[in-house]
Amino acid sequence: MLIQEQLKEIIDNNEIVLFMKGNPDFPQCGFSGRTTQILQSYDVRFASIDVLADDAVRAGIKEYSNWPTVPQLYVRGEFVGGCDIVTQLYESGELEQILKPEA
């Protein structure tokens, strides 16, 4: 399967997905670490994909979203943003509505 199809499948099949460097327990980049911490502050489950584990994923996700940096957060198939946007949405309170629209 092509990498773009694989990425679409991951994003479609997981309600909340974070593409990051490292994993939530051992983030390998400050921006990925901060984004993880913000997500963990909510009572939500999220899938995480370590882009450092696979160069095809790392390059492919940038192409998929037309977004040059990692981390990248997807919720219900929609690209939400990277660390700066997630931080801003967290501070404004909007992120909770995005992550938990039923709440």
């Binding site: 460097k21 490292g22 921006f31 990925s32 670490g33």
Partner: peptide
Amino acid sequence: TPDSPPCLGGS
């Protein structure tokens, strides 16, 4: 201007 997080190593 918001601060950037500290580096955690990595790539």
